[in-house]
Computed example of a mutant assay.
Amino acid sequence: MAPSRDTASLRAMTRVAHLYHRRGLVQTEIAAEMGLSQAGVSRLLTAAADRGIVRTIVVPPAGFHSDLEQAIEQRFGLREVHVVAAGALTGERLTEALARALVPVLQLTPIDRRSIGLTSWSRTLQSAVATLPDFPRATARRVVELLGDVGRPTLQHRAALTTERFAQATGGEPVFLRAPGVVATARMRDALLDGDPHARRALASMDDIDLVLTGIGDARATRPLVAGENFFTDDQFAAARAQGAVGEIGLRFLNIDGEPVASDLDELVLGMELAQLRRVPRRIAVAGGTGKHAAILAAARGRWIDVLVTDDGTARSLLDPVSLDTSERRI
């Protein structure tokens, strides 16, 4: 079910109030930060006072974790953190909760004339895009798939539909990467690109991305993806972990300190490189769950992302990462 308009409004009021009253930004600075007009910021501040969100301090509505979000923002230098009260949710229910939380974040993100990169095979992003209303008067430039096809043909088709739907919602041109996400050899990758101008265009478009929407992986094959199906094999994932990998973004591996884990596997991937990701002005990640704590910590430490949507358990682990550091460095 799509988040209500009131939920999105509450989120916007709380964010504006936080920036104005706690961080001390003036209205023009908030307008630039959130892609709003100054008049829009003023209306949200007035509405926040009317709803009781602002008194002498910012009082978030029930279910919001502003103090936890602010602590993570300050610890890792992130632009925004949005924490979902997930409790004991796991699996698909956690995926759906994260997707619902992502939708109002996307609705408040400036997209006009932006080129948007999308990891359309992420289940959470697929769920969010499926419930995302059209952006009014949307004028995005393009929506670029950031990784080639992975998994079975049915999963590849679902990813393509997600890209098409997001492009429709944002008014951008879809740029598909209809090529295997992982190939057997670097020579095969070169031969494939030599004969496919559309794949070359998609990869070239990644040099000019303004906004990235991505998941974060735990350096393992996660269902419904199966190792070896246009995807790394179990042995390849194990080799990456043996080199210190604890997570990945777009199948580019990171160690516990957020540093790239370089290997020959990089040459087998058709997708965005970490150097390209680093240059993107805004990088929104959505990920959560116990199995991804180390991966999300790595992404935050390395500042590969600047906006994070996650669950409350993961958020608390980011503020107390000692056990993760110790266990991952022993691997």
Rank of each mutant, 00 (worst) to 15 (best):
V280C: 13
G228N: 10
A221M: 08
A219Y: 00
I305A: 05
A99Y: 08
P136V: 08
T131Y: 00
L36E: 12
N230H: 12
L193W: 04
V58T: 04
L68V: 07
M13L: 09
A238T: 13
E267I: 00
A86C: 08
R252N: 09
A298S: 12
L213A: 01
S42N: 14
H198D: 12
G181V: 05
V41R: 10
G91L: 06
L203I: 15
M1P: 12
I296C: 03
T46I: 03
T185K: 08
D264A: 14
A12R: 14
P224F: 06
M272T: 14
T290F: 03
F135S: 11
V175D: 10
G148N: 11
P180K: 09
A239R: 09
R43G: 00
R11V: 05
P60A: 13
D67F: 01
G172K: 12
T170E: 09
V226F: 01
L192Y: 09
P180I: 02
A239E: 13
P224K: 09
N230A: 07
R329A: 07
M34G: 09
T46Y: 04
D257W: 02
A179V: 13
A62R: 15
Q276L: 03
N255L: 03
P136K: 13
L108N: 14
G35Y: 05
R223H: 09
A221G: 15
H21A: 11
L132K: 12
Q276V: 06
V16Y: 02
R301N: 11
G171K: 12
E96S: 12
V26F: 02
A130N: 13
G228V: 05
A49D: 13
D196Q: 06
L211A: 04
L155K: 06
Q276E: 14
I216T: 10
L125I: 15
E164C: 04
V103N: 06
D264I: 03
V144A: 12
L94F: 11
A128R: 08
A184G: 07
R189Y: 02
A238M: 01
T162Y: 00
A285D: 01
D235L: 06
F253N: 08
L98V: 12
A295E: 01
L268A: 08
R75K: 15
F76L: 08
I111S: 13
H198F: 01
V150D: 04
F253C: 09
K292F: 00
G215C: 00
P224I: 07
W121E: 05
D134V: 12
E248R: 06
V322A: 15
R330V: 07
P104H: 08
A262W: 05
T56W: 01
R75M: 07
Y20T: 10
T7V: 11
A32M: 07
V58M: 02
V212G: 03
L265G: 07
S37L: 03
E173F: 01
T154A: 14
